[in-house]
Nucleic acid binder design. Structure first.
Lengths: 245, 245
DNA sequence: ACCTGAACACCGTTCAAGT
DNA sequence: ACCTGAACACCGTTCAAGT
């Protein structure tokens, strides 16, 4: 299963010199539409302007055509986003399961999963919306299950925890993306969100919110990635507690 | 801080009989617009047709006015949804912290939090999008922090875990809501999603997906709520492991 | 101050007509 | 078979004009 990305210009016939009487009169090259070229165009729009800017019209524009043309290769915007998501997930590679290190391996995959989603602006929002049944998503599921099972996690726990883990990753990226889209261009969005939260808590009456105000310094400590990793630790710790001896 | 819902018809003056020459000529009663009446209307639209059907136009329609009129009391659709969310969260009551039972209390609050969001169709999608800074959301945060701290969870862990927990709850409701919106009216959406997943996994080549195919029976076992509770257990278990003696 | 009609600049999707 | 112009039925938000 070679992964060729499809957008390459593979000519079937070696290039011959064009006869002079045809030169300059050929139509501009328009590769025919295809699912993969549409996915590539959607990814370009996504990376340039975020998920909100991905509309069928904009993607069609990127391909110099109208929105109706996309529906020949893609049944809906929803399907298109699922295809983009799975394409991107191809970048998450899986390690060989090492029973001694299953905890670190799970954490490592989760962190890289998150990083890949986050690297494409706010694709995390699409990730949460999709049931992950694309080929690349399935490879990640297979890999995670193999790692956990090799570590002795019970089969039922492996199966159910997979959902939880994917939910946690997607949700975190989704929220990160939201902060990002709210922040002015150039600011650190999660720092801003934390500053805002700090202001809200400071303004609270201490008698009705004693714990929240007391813990405020801890609430705003650390950056988003540190918090995500903390959640992962809690999670893997709890999972280890279900291990069969 | 009395919580009066605002939609009640509180007349300032006792009702006097209407003089006959005015009877039938009064304009139809139109309470003036207010933030709370708009929130109530939005909630009605939400419960009737789901989050996707909540548009400024539909809400305005519900109030017999045009969309522009809403912007006097609400700055954007986003703010409106945040107000609706916090209004609904008022139904989540908090128990008095019991140090002996902090684990069960956390689980209990999380389950009720989830139930309240789920009971309003797919409001969970809005919950994930909002930074929870409404008054009712803050009361839930305060309550959860108090419970965990009384149980001896470290202050840093309390503060950070709050985010993780809210993320997990919102994400689960969000996904539930998505399945719900995809299912035909009347079907069990999560059962459908699981059946679909089962079909996908069954069709997979066993040599490349050995673990996924082997664990398939466990993947499709249990309903959505059981899975959610399982995740909660893992989570509370992991949190207990960070406890200071 | 509060409300609103009309408009602006968009959406996703369908469909008949073209090549 | 594949593509597309035009249309359908919507959006959120703004703004000048009204009361």
């Amino acid at each position: 299963m070679a992964r060729t990305s499809g957008t390459g210009s593979g000519a079937k016939v070696p290039d011959l010199p064009t006869p002079p009487w045809r030169r300059g009169r050929t139509r501009p090259v328009r590769q025919p539409l295809s699912q993969s070229s549409i996915v590539a165009a959607a990814l370009r729009v996504l990376d340039a302007g975020g998920l909100d800017s991905v509309s069928m019209r904009r993607v069609a524009d990127e391909l110099n055509t109208g929105p109706a043309s996309l529906y020949v290769h893609v049944s809906s915007k929803e399907e298109l986003l699922e295809l983009v998501l799975d394409h991107v997930l191809g970048a998450v590679t899986m390690p060989e399961p090492d029973p001694e290190n299953w905890r670190d391996q799970v954490k490592d995959v989760a962190l890289r999963f998150r990083a890949v989603l986050a690297s494409h602006h706010d694709l995390g929002r699409a990730s949460l919306a999709a049931i992950p049944t694309g080929p690349n998503a399935l490879l990640i599921s297979e890999g995670l299950l193999a790692i956990m099972r090799s570590g002795g996690v019970s089969e039922q726990a492996c199966a159910w925890v997979l959902d939880v883990l994917q939910l946690y990753i997607s949700a975190d990226v989704y929220e990160t993306a939201l902060y990002l889209s709210r922040a002015e261009h150039g600011e650190d969005p999660s720092a801003m969100a934390q500053q805002y939260l700090g202001e809200v808590i400071s303004a609270l009456p201490q008698d009705r919110f004693p714990t929240l105000t007391a813990l405020m310094p801890h609430m705003v400590a650390g950056n988003r990635e540190a918090r995500f990793e903390f959640g992962l630790d809690i999670f893997v710790q709890g999972l280890a507690a279900t291990q069969q001896p």
